[in-house]
Design a protein around this nucleic acid. Structure first.
Lengths: 364, 364
DNA sequence: ATGAAAGCGCTAACAT
DNA sequence: ATGTTAGCGCTTTCAT
C-alpha cells in the first residue's frame, strides 16, 4: 500500500511542507497559483492526509468514544444512531464499544478509548456501583458524559439510601419519574385501579428510578399494588413472558402491567396471548422506550418515547463544555473582551418523555 | 487534563524511556527490579500510554473501520455486534460508520477511515454501482473486505448482464441462491404451488441475487409466478404492508409470499391481518435474515438465518490475509524456512444459510 | 506569502 | 539488560 506524505507533495509542487500543510488544512492564506500547484501535486500522487500524525501534533482526534451495555438492545441501537448522526454533522467520528453488561469489559473499553485519545466519551454505565470506579477515573482524564444510565455516588460519600446523583459527573437522560406519571395517569384514566411492575434487576440507575417513579405515582393515584406484583428479571422478551406467567397465574390479577422497557412488554404480551388473556380487555400493558417494533406487535404497544436525538445533542454540547479551550481560543477570547464561560459543576439533564398511546391500553 | 508521558515515568523510575517502553509493551525482557520500579512510577503518576504516538511510530492502529447502510436495520445491528465481538477478541476496536444508504456519505466515511489509518475496512456497500468507485479506490489504499453486499464490476469491464463479481474485491456473504432454494423447497413441501416475491429496489447485490434465486428455484419447482407478483419497495415494514395490499387485492392470490427480508415480511403479516387474510392458512409468508423479532411477531416468522458470527470471523481473516506482513515477521518467516502464504486473488465466500421454520408457513 | 525547523510521544535500531 | 537516538508525518512558531 503506497504511502504518499506531505513531503512528497511538497517536492513535486516545488514548495515547502509548511505550504502544503497550509493548503490542505486551509489554516492560512496561500498564493493562488501555489495553491493550484499543490492541489495538483496532491491529486497526481493520490495523497491522503495522515490523521494519526495530525492528531499527535494537534493533540485531538476528532473522535468520540461511546460505550453502551448492549448494542443489540434496540433502544441503545437508536441511541448509537442518534450519536453517530450528531457527531457526523460536527465532522467527528464515533468509536463504538459494547460492554455486554460486564463492568470489566466496560472498564477495559474506557481505558482503551483514553489511550486512543478520543476527544470525549459518552457512556451508559452498565452497573450503578460496579461501573463507578472506572467511569469516575475516566472522567478525570477526558471529557465524559453519562447517557441514559449513570453511576451512583460512592457509598462512603452517599448520605444513605440515595439514588446517587451521577457520581458528580454530567448526565443526560430521561425524566423517569415524569414518564411513570404519564403512564400511570393514562392507565388510571383508562380505568385501571391496580397495577404490577415488571423490570430488570435493580443494578442500574434508570431501572431504579423507574421503579421509584412507579411506586410514587401508583401511590399518589391510589393504585393497588400487591407485594408480589413487582417482578424482577432482565431486559428481554423471554423475561417478560415469564413474568406474565407469574402475574397471571397468581391469585389476584392486576388491571395493568407496567413494564420497564418495550422488550419486557413484548414478552408480557406474548405471555398473555399464550394464556388466553386478552389485552387490553382483561389486562392493560405498557412498555418503555418506544422501540420501532413496539408499533408492530399485536396489539401495538402503548409506551413512552425517549428523545434520543436531543439526548445526543445535549451530550455533545456538554462534551464541548468540558473540553478545555485551546490556548489560541483563550487568547482570542480575552483579546475580544469575551469572558469565557466557566465550566459549571456536574450537570444533570433529564429530558421529558412523550406518551405514545396504542392498542395495548384501553381508549380513555 | 494531565498529560503524563513516557519521559515523566522514565525520570521518576530513574531509567531511560526505552526501558519504560519495553516494560509497557512487554516487547523485550527487562530486569525484575527495574520492571517493578517502572510500574510503580507509572502507577504513581497515573500514566496512560498515548496510542496516537504509538500508532504513528508503528504504523498501525489496531482499529478496523466498518461501514453499513443503516445500523437501525436489525440485521446490520447483528452484523455490527458480531464484528465488534470478533475484533474485541483480537484486541482491536471498531470504528462504526453509517452511510444512511447514501453513496456520497459512504464515500466520505471511507475517505475518513483511510485518513485515520485504520488497519482494515469492512464495508457493506449501499449501492451496487454508485458505491463501486469509492469502494474500489479504498481497497487500493487499505485491506478491505465487502460484507453481505458487494459492488458490481465496472460496466465497461462487465461482460454484460452479469451480477458483477464483487468488483474484484474480497467478499463474504450469504449463499442467496441456496437460501431461496431452501425457502421454496419448504414452501413446496408445505403445499404451495404459486408464489410472489416482495423485495426492495434492485440497487444492491444481495437484493438482485435473491430475486434471481427466487426466479430460478420457483421455475425449477414448477411454481406459478404471475408477472405482477414481483413487488419492489424498500426494506421496511411499511413497504411490506403496502405490498401485501397490492398482492391480496389483486385478481389472483399467490399461495405464498416470499420476502427479501424480515422487515418486509413483518409488514406483509400486518397487511394480511388488516385484510382478514389468515397466515399460514390462506397464504404462507417467509422472511429473510432471522432478526430477533421474527420470533416474536404473530404468527412467528419462517425465515432463513444468516451466520453473522462466522461472517465476521471470515471477514477478519481476509483482512489479515491482505495485510502486508511487517518486515520483522517476513524476516522471521524466512529464517524459520516457512514460506509466506501468497495473497490470493479476490476471494468470494458464500456461507450457507439455515432454514428456520416457524408459524407463518404450514407444517409439512 | 512562504520557508526552516522544532517537536508531539513513542518505538526500534543500534550501541554498550 | 539497558541506554542513546533517529525518526513516524504533521502543525506551528518564528523568520524572512
Amino acid at each position: 500500500m503506497p504511502s504518499v506524505t506531505i513531503t512528497d507533495v511538497a517536492r513535486r509542487a516545488g514548495v515547502s511542507v509548511a505550504t502544503v500543510s497550509r493548503v490542505m488544512s486551509a489554516s492560512r492564506p496561500v498564493g493562488r497559483e501555489v495553491e493550484v500547484r499543490v492541489r495538483r501535486a496532491a491529486a497526481d500522487l493520490g495523497y491522503s492526509a495522515n490523521g494519526i500524525a495530525r492528531a499527535l501534533r494537534r493533540n485531538r482526534t476528532d473522535t468520540v468514544g461511546m460505550v453502551v451495555p448492549s448494542i443489540l438492545n434496540p433502544f441503545f441501537t437508536t441511541l448509537v444512531d442518534s450519536m453517530e448522526r450528531a457527531l457526523h454533522a460536527e465532522g467527528k467520528q464515533l468509536f463504538l464499544c459494547d460492554s455486554r453488561q460486564d463492568p470489566d469489559v466496560e472498564a477495559q473499553h474506557l481505558r482503551s478509548l483514553i489511550e486512543r485519545h478520543v476527544d470525549g466519551i459518552v457512556v451508559s454505565p452498565c452497573h450503578m456501583t460496579a461501573s463507578a470506579a472506572a467511569v469516575t477515573a475516566s472522567a478525570r482524564q477526558v471529557p465524559l458524559v453519562q447517557l441514559d444510565r449513570h453511576v451512583a455516588l460512592d457509598r462512603r460519600a452517599d448520605g444513605g439510601g440515595g439514588d446517587g446523583d451521577g457520581g458528580g459527573i454530567d448526565w443526560v437522560g430521561l425524566d423517569d419519574d415524569e414518564a411513570l406519571r404519564l403512564l400511570l395517569a393514562h392507565l388510571h384514566a383508562a380505568g385501571a385501579r391496580s397495577a404490577a411492575f415488571v423490570t430488570s434487576e435493580l443494578t442500574n440507575s434508570s431501572t431504579k428510578q423507574r421503579l421509584a417513579g412507579f411506586r410514587r405515582h401508583a401511590s399518589d393515584l391510589g393504585f393497588r399494588v400487591d407485594d408480589d406484583w413487582i417482578v424482577l428479571g432482565d431486559y428481554t422478551v423471554d423475561s417478560g413472558d415469564e413474568a406474565a406467567g407469574r402475574l397471571l397465574d397468581g391469585a389476584a390479577r392486576p388491571d395493568a402491567i407496567v413494564c420497564a422497557d418495550d422488550l419486557i412488554a413484548i414478552g408480557v404480551l406474548r405471555g398473555c396471548r399464550e394464556r388466553g388473556v386478552r389485552v387490553p380487555e382483561d389486562v392493560q400493558v405498557t412498555g418503555f422506550d418506544d422501540i420501532v417494533f413496539s408499533e408492530h406487535v399485536t396489539p401495538s404497544l402503548t409506551t413512552v418515547d425517549q428523545p434520543t436525538h436531543r439526548m445526543a445533542r445535549e451530550a455533545i454540547r456538554l462534551l464541548q463544555l468540558r473540553t478545555p479551550a485551546d490556548p489560541g481560543a483563550r487568547a482570542r477570547a480575552l483579546a475580544s473582551g469575551v469572558a469565557e464561560e466557566p465550566a459549571p459543576d456536574a450537570v444533570r439533564i433529564a429530558l421529558r418523555p412523550r406518551l405514545v398511546v396504542r392498542q395495548s391500553t384501553r381508549a380513555v
